[in-house]
């Protein structure tokens, strides 16, 4: 069932001043894994993503990608090795169109961005692939719209499309459905379903509906610590999780 280890995180820790936002987190994702990371607001989920992807340096711990230690590598280098994330808050180029975003992502992935005299419109195979990506996310109608004037829900879909376009080995989605109208969130699941089965996906999500539909395993993070992990059924039944996670969610609302 489970393949080779793609992402191995060991003893990852980080503090902001006095605040311990990640303490001794260890986690392994194998080829084919569909794992959900859940936890109350402020648990340190996004921080964990930032640590793993190299946006902020950890104070302790190691990160291995397909067996290779990437702890000291810059973010862009990890991306080139196939570790891709989406942002919790859509982070896009406001004046560029939807199509241009996907073109840039695909060109960047294939390292064809240093072509100075080729026209983007004529790069072999690009238009077709971009059209497929647009279709998959239902963004075809707004392909030529500048992202700055796009409804937020569609910006979120583009954010996911960008991550998918990168053909990741390990894909980390930080609350992909946040801000997406409920009817559209199925598109995101569909897109994930269409991904090659041999890559590993870690999804951070608050919407438990989505979590249970997506995940084969669930990891619970609270106050920067791994609380427990298990199959969806185990987690759903775990009284400790209900207590900590659902309890504090109820407070937050």
């Amino acid at each position: 069932m489970s393949g080779a280890a793609l992402l191995e995180v060991e003893g990852l820790s980080r503090n902001f001043g006095g605040l311990q936002v990640a303490s001794d987190i260890s986690l392994t994702l194998r080829a084919g894994d569909r794992c959900a990371l859940i936890g109350p607001n402020g648990a340190g989920k996004t921080t964990f993503v930032n640590l793993v992807t190299g946006v902020i340096p950890p104070s302790a711990g190691t990160i291995r990608l397909a067996g290779r230690d990437v702890t000291g590598l810059p973010a862009a280098e990890r991306v080139r090795l196939g570790l891709i994330r989406s942002f919790q808050v859509a982070r896009l180029f406001r004046s560029m169109t939807v199509r241009e975003h996907l073109e840039l992502a695909v060109l960047q992935r294939d390292r064809r961005t240093f072509r100075l005299f080729a026209s983007v419109a004529r790069v072999a195979g690009l238009a077709g692939e971009v059209a497929e990506l647009l279709d998959a996310m239902g963004l075809g109608a707004v392909a030529s719209t500048a992202v700055g004037s796009l409804p937020y829900g569609q910006q979120r879909l583009l954010e996911i499309a960008l991550a998918v376009a990168m053909k990741p080995k390990v894909l980390i989605l930080d609350e992909p459905a946040a801000g997406v109208p409920h009817a559209e969130s199925q598109r995101i699941l569909d897109a994930i379903d269409r991904l090659p089965t041999d890559l590993a996906v870690l999804m951070i999500e608050h919407d438990m509906d989505l979590v249970f539909r997506f995940a084969s395993s669930i990891v619970v993070l609270a106050q920067g610590r791994l609380l427990c992990s298990g199959t969806a059924a185990e987690i759903a039944a775990d009284p400790q999780v209900r207590e900590v996670y659902l309890g504090s969610r109820a407070d937050a609302r």
Binding site: F93, S95, M96, E100, E103, L104, T113, L116, V120, A121
Partner: peptide
């Protein structure tokens, strides 16, 4: 030509 090339696209991305 250059600004409409893949390179030009990437540069616009960097600018933003």
């Amino acid at each position: 030509r250059i600004v409409r090339s893949p390179f030009g696209l990437a540069c616009r991305g960097v600018k933003e």
